[in-house]
């Protein structure tokens, strides 16, 4: 029988695991070495000849995070090695290392299209940022878990290269949080009968569409005092005239600030609306219909409220709930800091 050719792998490490030094070397620029370094040798070892690390690349954690061009340089190194697969980490619980591991793995997977694995621990802050883009092997929290991590990486990679379906229920990987169509053994109608009978008997069953429940925040107690410190916020797609910040008209990933200090009312000379989800002609004619700055200024003149000097705005159309929740947290920070007591959020 022919000996099976080992899987040729490029391995990504940070300065510490590459043996260049600790925090003092975190600013180290991208580097490349022929063959395995440190944990890469262990990976070859536990794979019992199934994996050959042909090159090791890496960068200092701080350097990677602070230099966006670093990943381009690293991609070139990986491409040059012409390997079958790419492995980044494990980063365990380390935040900056995890960011580098996730980012570089996601780019390699997308741009080079070779089998790619990242590895980190459940509490790594980079996990949620990259799990949808690349398979991430689940590891323990620190370097003491290196051997187990390498065994798991070798196992998942072997199955991936064999064309097996990677299943987070049976392999030590984090679920991607993605979905796809597959064929099940029996038609949906039979599964529905099986499931309802299991439920009636009190037996275990697993819903095929996981429940997504969004938390319902309790409203804050009514604000008291005169004048009330108030901010104006909208998801109606208000932007500065000409949209200099290139705000999207939907599927928003960010929000913007529109300064209104000294402005008595909104006008088409000052602002416009960029939103794909409703007929914007009427608010473009008079943007106070979307954000009632004119009336708010009247209340301010009466001494009943005091306005925060910026409008916070985004386009709420088809924006993921996760993103919208983040916008809320991001907006609440500066408003709380400024002592804002209430927000008028006009939606469309």
């Amino acid at each position: 029988m022919e000996p099976v050719r080992p899987i040729r792998v490029v391995h990504y490490l940070n300065q510490f695991f590459a043996g260049l030094g600790g925090e003092s070397q975190a600013g180290h620029p991208p580097f490349e070495r022929e063959g395995p370094v440190g944990p890469g040798k262990l990976l070859e070892d536990v794979s019992q000849g199934a994996i050959s690390v042909v090159a090791t690349v890496g960068a200092g954690d701080t350097y990677f995070v602070e230099h966006p061009e670093a990943s381009q340089e690293l991609i070139s190194m990986v491409r040059k090695a012409g390997a079958d697969a790419f492995i980044a980490g494990p980063a365990f619980s380390s935040g900056r290392y995890g960011e580098a591991v996730g980012a570089i793995a996601a780019r390699v997977a997308q741009e080079l299209g070779i089998a790619t694995l990242a590895a980190m621990a459940e509490d790594n802050p980079a996990l949620d940022r990259y799990r949808r883009q690349v398979w991430i092997v689940r590891t323990g929290p620190h370097g003491g878990h290196m051997r187990k991590a390498m065994e798991d990486i070798a196992e998942v990679l072997r199955r991936m290269m064999a064309g097996e379906i990677i299943d987070a229920n049976t392999l030590p990987v984090f679920p991607r949080g993605l979905k796809q169509n597959r064929l099940r053994e029996v038609p949906a109608a039979r599964r529905a009968v099986d499931m309802v009978l299991a439920k009636w008997r009190g037996a275990d069953f697993v819903s095929e569409i996981p429940l997504t429940l969004h938390s319902k925040p309790n409203p804050a107690p009514a604000a008291q005092g005169l004048p009330l410190h108030v901010a104006l916020v909208t998801d109606g797609g208000l932007v500065r005239r000409g949209n200099p910040e290139r705000m999207p008209s939907g599927h928003s990933k960010r929000w913007c600030r529109i300064p209104i200090a000294g402005v008595s009312r909104l006008s088409p000379e000052l602002v416009e609306v960029n939103h794909q989800g409703y007929d914007t002609r009427f608010v473009n004619l008079d943007p106070n219909r979307l954000v009632p700055l004119d009336v708010a200024r009247e209340l301010e003149a009466e001494g009943r409220i005091r306005l925060y000097p910026e409008i916070f705005s985004t386009a709420g159309l088809a924006t993921a709930v996760e993103d919208a929740s983040r916008f809320g947290r991001e907006m609440a920070g500066p408003l709380k800091e400024a002592g804002v007591q209430a927000v008028i959020l006009t939606s469309t």
């Binding site: 949080g177 949906a188 069953f205 429940l211 997504t212 993921a320």
Partner: peptide, 20 residues
């Protein structure tokens, strides 16, 4: 967007046995 969270336009905590 391909994620499991945005699969349906409506959810209920009582809908805990859905077949796809």
């Amino acid at each position: 967007e391909g994620g499991v969270e945005d699969s349906l336009t409506a959810y209920s905590p009582r809908a805990d046995a859905l077949v796809s």
